Deep mutational scan, measured.
Amino acid sequence: DLPPEQWSHTTVRNALKDLLKDMNQSSLAKECPLSQSMISSIVNSTYYANVSAAKCQEFGRWYKHFKKTK
């Protein structure tokens, strides 16, 4: 379990794929700090720029909290 400071584009993509087993992209976009188009691009590997470090950390913090509450 990585601390949010160490999250990267790959970590975010893997976490998104895991979350999308249980929910669809639009529900996920309402919950998490990423937009639906960004989620779609990341999981389909069409998001060519890497997600910014700040966004990765924000998502990492959100993901840890989300997993605790589920």
Rank of each mutant, 00 (worst) to 15 (best):
N14F: 12
G60Q: 05
I42R: 00
S37Q: 14
P4K: 09
D1H: 01
K70Y: 07
S27G: 06
L2S: 15
C32N: 00
V43G: 04
A49D: 13
Q25P: 13
Q36E: 15
H9F: 07
A49G: 11
Q6P: 05
A29N: 04
E5R: 04
S41M: 14
N24T: 11
I42V: 11
A53Q: 14
K67L: 15
S40D: 14
K30G: 10
P33D: 02
Y47L: 07
A54N: 05
W7M: 03
L28C: 02
T69P: 06
T11V: 07
K68L: 09
T10I: 15
D1V: 03
S8M: 03
Q6E: 07
S40E: 11
K68G: 07
A54K: 08
T11A: 12
S52N: 06
K64M: 14
V12L: 12
N50F: 03
S41I: 11
T10W: 14
Q36R: 09
W7T: 03
D18T: 10
S45G: 12
A54S: 10
P4R: 09
N50M: 04
M23Y: 14
I42P: 00
N14V: 06
D22G: 10
Y47F: 14
V12Y: 00
N24C: 03
S37M: 05
H65V: 11
V51I: 15
G60M: 09
H65A: 12
Y47E: 09
H9N: 11
S41Q: 09
A15V: 10
D1W: 01
N14T: 14
E31Q: 15
K67C: 12
A15C: 15
F66G: 04
S27T: 11
Q36F: 11
C32S: 07
S35N: 09
K70S: 02
Y48H: 15
H9A: 10
I39K: 03
S37T: 14
E58M: 06
S8P: 01
L34K: 00
F59M: 05
S26M: 13
K55Q: 09
Q36N: 15
S45M: 08
K68V: 06
S27N: 03
D18L: 09
A53K: 14
L34C: 00
S26N: 12
R13A: 08
P33S: 02
S8C: 15
S35F: 00
S35Y: 00
Q57E: 12
L19W: 00
A15H: 02
K55S: 09
Q25F: 14
T69S: 04
A15D: 01
T10P: 11
N24V: 04
L19R: 02
T46V: 08
K67T: 06
S8I: 04
M23N: 08
L34Q: 01
K30Y: 14
R61V: 14
T10R: 11
S35C: 04
Q25E: 14
Y47N: 15
E58N: 02
F66T: 06
D18M: 09
S41D: 07
S40C: 11
K68W: 06
K55C: 12
S27Q: 13
T11C: 04
T11G: 06
K55Y: 05
N44I: 03
W62T: 01
N50E: 13
A53D: 12
Q6R: 13
T11W: 07
M38N: 07
K68S: 12
H9Y: 15
N50L: 02
K55F: 01
W62S: 00
M38D: 13
S40P: 01
E58F: 01
Y47A: 12
V12E: 01
C56L: 12
L28P: 00
N50K: 14
I42L: 13
C32M: 02
D1N: 10
I39D: 01
P4T: 11
S27A: 15
M38T: 09
K67I: 12
T10Y: 10
Q57D: 08
S35A: 07
T46M: 12
H65R: 08
T10G: 14
L20T: 03
S8E: 05
S35V: 00
W62R: 01
L28S: 01
R13I: 02
H9S: 15
K67R: 07
E31L: 05
R13G: 05
A15P: 01
P33N: 12
Q57I: 11
S41L: 08
V51D: 07
S37F: 09
S8A: 07
S45P: 13
M23D: 07
P3D: 15
D22E: 11
T11N: 08
D1T: 02
Q6W: 11
A53Y: 10
D1K: 08
S26C: 12
L34P: 00
L20R: 04
Q57F: 09
I39C: 02
K64S: 09
K64G: 08
W7C: 01
S40H: 15
T10A: 11
C56F: 13
S27E: 13
Y47T: 10
D22T: 13
Q6H: 03
N24D: 15
C32Q: 01
N24M: 03
C56H: 04
N44S: 05
K21W: 02
S40T: 13
T10V: 15
K67N: 15
T11Q: 13
M38E: 15
A29E: 10
S8V: 09
C56V: 10
A49H: 10
A29K: 03
Y47R: 10
F66A: 08
S37C: 12
K70V: 08
L28M: 06
K68A: 05
V43C: 06
D1M: 06
F66R: 07
Q57K: 10
C32I: 03
Y48N: 07
S52L: 00
N44P: 01
N24P: 12
A29G: 10
S52H: 05
R61L: 13
V43Y: 07
V12C: 07
R13P: 00
W7F: 04
A53S: 06
I42W: 04
K55G: 04
I42E: 01
L20E: 04
M38C: 08
N14Y: 07
E31S: 06
A54D: 09
L19K: 00
Y47W: 07
K30P: 07
L28T: 01
H9V: 12
Q25L: 15
V43P: 00
L16M: 12
C56Q: 01
N14P: 01
P4L: 09
S27I: 15
A49Q: 13
A29L: 08
A53R: 09
L16P: 00
S45L: 05
F66E: 04
T69H: 02
S45E: 11
L16F: 01
K21G: 07
C56Y: 08
Q25A: 11
N24G: 12
L20Y: 02
K67P: 02
Q57S: 08
A53W: 06
C32T: 05
F59I: 00
C56K: 02
M38P: 00
E58S: 05
L19N: 02
Q36L: 07
S26A: 14
K68Q: 10
S40K: 11
T69I: 15
H65S: 15
I39W: 02
F59W: 00
S26F: 05
Y48I: 12
Q57L: 08
